[in-house]
Design a protein around this nucleic acid. Sequence first.
DNA 1: AGCCGGTTGTGACCGTTATCACACCAGGGT
DNA 2: ACCCTGGTGTGATAACGGTCACAACCGGCT
Lengths: 239, 239
Amino acid sequence: MLSPYGLEIVESCLTCKLRAERIFCDLPNSALQAFENIKYATAYPKGAVLFVEGQSPRGIFVLCKGRVKMSICSTDGKTLILKIAEPGEVLGLSATVSGKPYELTAETIDPCQVNFVKREDFLRFLKEHGDACFRVAEQLSEKYNNACHEVRSLGLSHSAAEKLAKLLLEWSTRNGETAKQEPRLKLALTHEEIAQMIGTSRETVTRLFAELKKRQIIQSKGSTLMIRNKGALRLIAGA
Amino acid sequence: MLSPYGLEIVESCLTCKLRAERIFCDLPNSALQAFENIKYATAYPKGAVLFVEGQSPRGIFVLCKGRVKMSICSTDGKTLILKIAEPGEVLGLSATVSGKPYELTAETIDPCQVNFVKREDFLRFLKEHGDACFRVAEQLSEKYNNACHEVRSLGLSHSAAEKLAKLLLEWSTRNGETAKQEPRLKLALTHEEIAQMIGTSRETVTRLFAELKKRQIIQSKGSTLMIRNKGALRLIAGA
DNA sequence: AGCCGGTTGTGACCGTTATCACACCAGGGT
DNA sequence: ACCCTGGTGTGATAACGGTCACAACCGGCT
């Protein structure tokens, strides 16, 4: 079957082939069946806003397909991207558990498939399924861990160069490029967005990239970026 | 009874008078009894290190009395204080749940009473007590929320002045001084430590305080600080 | 009293980076 | 071909804040 935004919808969690790899989805069948009954399978186009920071929590969004930009934003319009969520992640979890407002804004950057669960339903589900509750704790730990990394990067770096280098190195540890001498990665974000990820200005990012290219540390063709000198990059990252 | 560091030890969680006010301690009696059996009541002097970031998790530390400084630290020795933990908080929780290394360092800044629970015991306890598991999720949400605030402050502020103003305003919302026109607060930290909380240098903090005093926004006698112009402070904080 | 360590105050200097202001260059639509 | 829009390169300028270097201060100790 084909959905609105050119997505093939996975109808049921029970038959989802991606289950085993995911932290949250991989539950015993009884719990999964219960989950099945309270979830709403939905799809969003690129650029859709799932929730906005400050809203009181309506429920959780389990991301099945596509990527979602998680950000905070100041009164004067400056935006900071905390992370790009990947399939398998549960969005809005901490707010839904605690009842406090969403602390982030979630905006799709691909067409996305999402399972939504209303807050009351979800809380009831947790009370009834202890094992799911533990998974939630695990997911929250994961998120906390992430946030700590962000704090470390933002708070302990001396320069924008350091933060950019850290980001590139982190990206290069994905997609099985970890071990490679000269890892490649797809630059899926604009300079503006990268700037928002490391808390600096767009111009600075552009200049830093130019600098890195001049020093032969990176190289790019099209949207593919190749790290030619991992050592030098690590040096800049301050480790 | 009197303990090593001049602390009066609360022997049992079951009779602890502080229970009701605390998020984690307030559990049904059956769970609390089980908790009682696996916890070790311990006491630490001021300056003791409960755990260090990067260590693999030995277990959780429930803080009953005293304050604990939670910080991260870079390779070159720079320190960033994320928060000062107060009684009732559970330290090392996310690492213990996920099994990943502690992401923070915990150091007592008062004589402290702490209930320690070994990781295996704690995980078993969680499996057997669904309601406790939910409390853990709540605590983790709380911590995540905190971390997000830290990220916001570090990442979206334009200046050190802004961050300091935010910190002072946050402090002033404690101790029931919230509503007051000219809230007072005890300055329990040195300029150095304040600097580490907002990710700036000690000298900058000193200069900022001088500036604020000159502009009659704050006033201090001894270790007591009085906010004389909340409006102006809020303006500096950018809200 | 005198000495000490830790803390606070202050000046000078200089690097990093935000900001503004453009030029430039795709790609898409008409 | 044209324009537009959104992304990218690059210079000039100013300010914020880190760092170094001291002086001043304030307990506590002997």
